[in-house]
Deep mutational scan, measured.
Amino acid sequence: MKVIFLKDVKGKGKKGEIKNVADGYARNFLFKQGLAIEATPANLKELE
């Protein structure tokens, strides 16, 4: 799953980066902790 990092995550990505991560990792950790959001077309447009 592609995500947009909202904060730096050690060993995974830095704020503003778009990366592929495991679905479970994204849903169970990154999204719940507010560290990333899903890289949907709408979210990508907001990032620009």
Rank of each mutant, 00 (worst) to 15 (best):
I37G: 02
M1N: 04
K45Q: 12
Q33E: 11
V21Q: 02
F5V: 00
R27A: 07
Y25H: 06
F31Q: 02
K14I: 09
G34Y: 08
G24V: 12
A39H: 06
K45G: 09
N28R: 12
E17P: 00
G24R: 13
I37Q: 05
G16Q: 02
L47S: 08
N20L: 15
E17G: 02
Q33K: 14
Q33F: 15
Y25P: 05
A26F: 14
M1L: 14
V3T: 01
F5W: 03
V9E: 01
E46Y: 13
E48P: 09
T40S: 10
E38T: 04
A36E: 00
N28A: 10
E38P: 14
A22E: 14
I37H: 04
V21A: 03
E38M: 10
G11Q: 04
L44Y: 06
Y25K: 06
I18K: 03
V21D: 01
L6M: 08
M1V: 13
I4F: 08
E38D: 04
E17A: 06
A22N: 14
V21M: 09
K15G: 03
E38Q: 10
T40Q: 04
G34F: 08
K10E: 15
G16D: 05
K10H: 12
N20V: 15
T40Y: 05
F31R: 01
L30Y: 04
Q33P: 01
K32F: 07
I37P: 00
A22G: 10
A36V: 06
E38S: 07
G11E: 05
G34I: 03
F29H: 10
Y25L: 08
N43I: 13
G16P: 01
I37W: 06
G13L: 02
E48V: 12
I37S: 04
E17K: 03
L47M: 12
F31P: 01
A39Q: 02
N43W: 06
V9R: 02
L44R: 07
K19G: 07
L6T: 06
A26E: 09
Y25G: 04
K32M: 11
P41D: 13
I4Q: 03
N43M: 12
K45R: 13
E46S: 13
E38L: 10
I18W: 03
N20D: 13
A22L: 10
Q33W: 15
K32E: 09
K15E: 07
N20Q: 13
L47G: 07
F31G: 02
F29Q: 08
V9H: 02
K12S: 14
R27T: 08
N28Q: 11
A39D: 02
E17N: 05
A42Q: 13
K15M: 10
E48Q: 14
I4G: 00
F29T: 09
I4E: 02
A36L: 02
G13S: 03
K7P: 00
I18E: 03
K14H: 10
K7L: 09
G24P: 11
K12H: 15
A36G: 04
F29P: 02
R27S: 06
D8F: 08
K14W: 09
K12Y: 15
G13P: 00
E38G: 03
A39V: 08
K2Q: 11
I37V: 13
F31E: 02
A42L: 11
E17D: 12
V21G: 00
G13R: 00
A26P: 01
K7Q: 13
K14G: 06
R27D: 03
G11M: 04
N28M: 11
G13V: 06
L44Q: 06
G16W: 10
N20H: 14
A22K: 11
G34T: 04
F29M: 08
G16R: 02
T40I: 06
P41Y: 11
L6G: 01
A36D: 00
N28W: 12
K19L: 10
L35F: 11
D8H: 08
Q33N: 15
E17Q: 11
I18Y: 03
D23R: 14
D8R: 06
K12R: 12
L35W: 11
Q33Y: 15
N43H: 10
G34D: 05
R27V: 11
D23K: 14
V9Q: 02
K32V: 14
V21S: 02
L44P: 03
N43R: 09
L30V: 01
F5G: 01
I37N: 02
L6I: 11
G11K: 05
E48Y: 12
E46L: 15
K14P: 01
K32I: 13
L30M: 03
N43K: 10
P41T: 10
E46Q: 14
L47W: 15
F5E: 01
A26D: 06
A22W: 10
K19F: 06
K10I: 13
G11H: 07
R27N: 06
P41H: 10
G16T: 02
E48A: 14
N20T: 15
P41K: 10
K2Y: 15
K32R: 11
L6F: 03
K2P: 08
K14T: 08
N20I: 15
